[in-house]
Computed example of a mutant assay.
Amino acid sequence: MSKVAGRKKRIIITTAALVAIGGGAAFAYWTAAGVGDTTTTAGTPTNFTITSTVAGGALSPNGPTQTFTFTVTNPGTGVQKLTNITAAVAGTNGAAWTSVTGCSKDDFAVGSPSFTATEIPANGFITGTVTLQMVDRPGVNQDGCKGATVPLHFAAS
């Protein structure tokens, strides 16, 4: 009987140990909490680039109109909205044009640029046109404009 009792005792102890180990593993866990933050930087707009070509005869007082075809390109990495384009007889960066004696911006009329306001995708472009004409200024000698290279300045926003 003692063999049977010892054997039963071992079975009971082994079973209890397995239940304790197995039961403990089934319900064992760690509690934890955590938070995390990160940041990134939004880019900044990249200035549009504008190029143009001109078609038409030489300018003269009240003479033919020249038509400029311009291209506005978005060299940035994302979409940028083009809402306005201006064109004016002006020097680099819109500075007053004074390089020709006897000829000024007042001798010319620039039309309103024709284009479609739109969103331009990265590396995309739009085209438009604008006209330029030399005006007749009665009583004013416009000889200074003969052979002058007339700068047209574009600005896009």
Rank of each mutant, 00 (worst) to 15 (best):
A28F: 15
A28D: 10
A28K: 02
Y29D: 08
W30C: 01
A32T: 14
V35S: 15
D37H: 13
T38Y: 13
T39D: 12
T40C: 04
T41I: 15
P45N: 12
S52Y: 00
V54D: 03
A55Y: 00
A55T: 10
A58Y: 03
S60T: 13
N62R: 06
N62T: 14
G63Q: 06
G63H: 10
P64I: 05
P64V: 12
T67Q: 09
F68N: 07
T69R: 00
V72P: 03
N74Q: 04
G76A: 10
G78C: 02
V79K: 13
L82H: 07
L82A: 07
T83N: 12
I85M: 06
A87I: 08
A87K: 01
V89W: 10
N93W: 01
A95W: 08
W97A: 03
T98V: 14
T98P: 08
V100A: 07
T101C: 04
T101R: 09
C103L: 06
D106S: 15
D107M: 11
F108E: 11
A109M: 11
G111H: 04
G111F: 03
P113Y: 08
S114G: 05
S114E: 15
F115V: 06
F115H: 11
T118Y: 11
T118S: 15
E119F: 02
G124Q: 01
I126W: 06
G128Y: 01
V130N: 05
V130G: 00
L132M: 11
L132W: 02
